[in-house]
C-alpha cells in the first residue's frame, strides 16, 4: 500500500486531496495540520511539525502519530529528539544540515528522514546544487539505518503525483534500484505508523514531551 504526506491549506483542499489520493492508488495518507476529514477507504493519520519549545508548539504535537522536525529547527528538535519521529531532509541548502549525531539519535527512536518532493523540485529548479545535500543525507540515513521516506508534501490537489513518478524520481536522482526506491513510498511510511514500531518504542517516547512542561 502506497503512502504519502500532504500539507493542505484548508479543510476543502484536504478532502479533495484525500479523494484524489485514493484515485492515484494511495492507501495511507499523513495530513500535516489539524484537519479532520472523512477518509473513506484511505487510512489517514495526523502529522505535526516540531518548530519550537514553547508550550503552544508542544500542544500542537499532542495527538500526532508522526512528529517531524525541520532542519532549520534542528537544535530545538534535538532537545526533544527522543520524541521526534522524523527529520525533513535539507532541501534548501547545498550543504547537509543533518549530521551523524542527529541521525544516530533518530535511529534510537526508529525515526525517518522525510524527503519533501514538491519543495525539493522547486528549489532544485532554481539551484541544482541543493540536490547534493539531500543525496548526502540520504546516504547517511541509509548507512545508519534511519528509514528514508519520499513524500509529495502537496498543498493543493493538483500537486499530488502518482507513486510511480516519485519512485522513478528517487531511482533516477539517488541511483537506487527500483525495489529500494519503492520502499521509500511503501514499506517505510507504513512501518512508521505500525503497531510493531509502537511496541518497539513503548515507554521511550511521549514521556519526554510531557515532562518538559
Amino acid at each position: 500500500m502506497y503512502a504519502d504526506l500532504i500539507a493542505p491549506r484548508s479543510v476543502d483542499d484536504c478532502s479533495r486531496m484525500v479523494e484524489k489520493a485514493g484515485s492515484l492508488g494511495y492507501g495511507i495518507l499523513g495530513i500535516l495540520g489539524d484537519f479532520e476529514v472523512e477518509s473513506g477507504p484511505i487510512k489517514t493519520f495526523k502529522v505535526a511539525l516540531a518548530d519550537g519549545m514553547d508550550r503552544r508548539s508542544r500542544q500542537k504535537l499532542r495527538g500526532a502519530e508522526l512528529i517531524l522536525a525541520k532542519p532549520s529547527s534542528l537544535e530545538d528538535a534535538r532537545r526533544i529528539a527522543s520524541s521526534v519521529d522524523g527529520m525533513i531532509a535539507t532541501y534548501d541548502s547545498e550543504r547537509p544540515r543533518i549530521d551523524y549525531v542527529s541521525l544516530r539519535q533518530l535511529k534510537r527512536n526508529e525515526g525517518a528522514l522525510v524527503i519533501p518532493l514538491s519543495y525539493l523540485i522547486r528549489r532544485m529548479s532554481e539551484r541544482a546544487q541543493v540536490l547534493r545535500s539531500v543525496y548526502l543525507e540520504l546516504r547517511m540515513a541509509i548507512r545508519i539505518g534511519v528509514y528514508p521516506i519520499l513524500c509529495s508534501f502537496a498543498s493543493e490537489e493538483r500537486e499530488l503525483v502518482p507513486p510511480r513518478l516519485m519512485i522513478s524520481f528517487s531511482e533516477f536522482f539517488f541511483d537506487l534500484r527500483r525495489e529500494e526506491s519503492k520502499r521509500f513510498v511503501k514499506d517505510f511510511p507504513t512501518y512508521m505508523i505500525s503497531k510493531e514500531r509502537k511496541l518497539k518504542l513503548k515507554g521511550r517516547s511521549e514521556v519526554e514531551i510531557q515532562d518538559t512542561d
Binding site: 518532493l117 514538491s118 529548479s125 500537486e159 513518478l165 516519485m166 522513478s168 524520481f169 533516477f172
Partner: peptide, 22 residues
C-alpha cells in the same frame, strides 16, 4: 531512459505546468 522522462514530467509538473498528468 523512461525514468528520466518520468522525472522530467514530474519536474515540469512542479515548476511549469501543474495540469500535466501521466
Amino acid at each position: 531512459s523512461v525514468k528520466a522522462v518520468l522525472t522530467a514530467i514530474l519536474i515540469l509538473k512542479y515548476t511549469e505546468c501543474s495540469e500535466i498528468d501521466v
